[in-house]
Design a binder for these strands. Structure first.
Lengths: 251, 251
DNA sequence: AATTTTCATTTGTCATACATATTAATGTCT
DNA sequence: AGACATTAATATGTATGACAAATGAAAATT
């Protein structure tokens, strides 16, 4: 592992890349201890703060963990689904908000992905996952639920559906898409009537999965997507109308 | 933005989280300049190296970029698809390799996702994307192509298919899944006959998309998935056989 | 033998200094 | 007055040295 002192990039960035490459290539295996910061500083011929900046970069990506004390140090971290998933959600969320992704595009992507695991979910869903879905449907029926809580419950419901496919890789990929939609969904104000309609569709989904009916699951997801987009559109229209009225007032 | 000096977590981690939350919440907008390192050190009541470690954590996630000089500093970075995609691929790749994900599970996830955008791709693919697919098919037919190059071309081909759906969010989500599979695919040795079979299926895909035939595209993807898994299985069997023979030799 | 103490190692944090890049202001010359 | 070189100011990048705090192992004590 060598670095180029004349490169335009920061030394800490170069060191981080070198170590990351070693991990990806398998030269450093899970739970293996890296040399101490002082030793790394010697090896790369830089100061300890520079090494530390590099290590923090890696820690930010959950590639290493550090431990203080005599037998402490930096260790190659086993990347767990949980951590990878959290990072993916943050990234996806920012990607959507910073690039002004339209509701329709995000919604289409989300339901396309969700429909992809519907057939597997119909086949493999466990009683446990069905119970989760029923419980969330019940929660969504409570009239005193806030919009945020309703959205959160919606996410839990759909995660159970996705997890039903029994494929961890699929769950991981989907989680980002479903959860990243939440901020966009939160912009919608759910009226009592719209909640009723969504609960009805969720019930239809749970029933279809209980019956292991893949076709029905797919059909209901299509209905749910259409209804969600319809809702978002009416919210956008109402907002545009308010803006126009306000404009007239000031004029 | 405040931090807790008595927390168990590092100060730099807390500061990074505080700034990240501000970005996610929209309190800091794209291209906005953060206070200088010295000012941040004052605000959080920590030293400059600690602030720097926090900033490097954020830089590792492409949330900020830094610039030297008089008008330099740390700026909130617009997260581009390109960067988010690179990160997602690294994460997915490590996730698969570190958690011993089986080829079948990864393969199933990948094709499920790919089939999700097939109908849209059949409808919206551009001539440009079709041309890319044809070009890659031609490359894959070259007999002197290395296995790595064959795999790389395979990735490009499937990316074109995914991009054909004309949904950037979908492309982003899919790219991670498709590319993360590559190291697993690279373990397969592609014989002349298997390459021929894959090229035939790719041609079938390109033809189906040219004809905007969604059903045919889906059917071919199913065939391709089955064939890929069959190939991987035979490779695994051959490997197991060699291992047994070696065992006998040493015994 | 069990417990306590000491000690060495390592990360976490701080203070300070200097190098370097970049821009803005200043000054100089034509 | 305008073009160009010089200087100053500000910011990040890097280095050095020091101390605090956590932690486990070895040594000393009961």
């Amino acid at each position: 592992m060598k670095i180029d002192p004349n490169s335009s990039k920061d030394l800490s960035a170069q060191i981080a890349t070198a170590i990351r490459d070693a991990i990806v290539a398998g030269d450093l295996i899970v739970d293996q201890r890296l040399p101490s910061e002082a030793e790394l500083a010697d090896q790369f011929e830089v100061s300890r703060p520079t090494v530390r900046e590099a290590l923090k970069r890696l820690a930010a990506q959950s590639l290493i963990r550090t431990q203080r004390g005599a037998t402490g140090g930096a260790f190659v971290n086993r990347l767990r689904y949980e951590e990878a998933y959290t990072q993916a959600v943050t990234t996806s969320t920012l990607l959507l908000s910073m690039n002004a992704v339209s509701f329709d595009v995000a919604c289409e992507a989300r339901y396309a992905l969700e429909r992809a695991c519907a057939p597997m979910s119909a086949q493999r869903r466990t009683p446990d996952q069905l119970a989760t879905m029923r419980a969330e449907i019940h929660r969504q029926s409570q009239p005193d639920l806030s919009d945020e809580a309703f959205c959160a419950s919606d996410v839990t419901f759909h995660r159970a559906l996705v997890d039903g496919a029994g494929n961890k890789v699929l769950s991981y990929q989907l989680a980002g898409a479903v959860e990243a939609m939440q901020p966009l969904m939160n912009m919608i104000t759910f009226t009592a009537r719209s909640r009723e309609a969504i609960v009805a569709l969720h019930t239809e989904l749970a029933d279809a999965l209980t019956a292991r009916d893949a076709a029905q699951t797919d059909a209901t997801l299509i209905k749910l997507e259409a209804y969600t987009r319809e809702l978002a559109q009416s919210v956008a229209q109402a907002r545009a109308k308010r803006a126009t009225q306000k404009e007239r007032k000031t004029a």
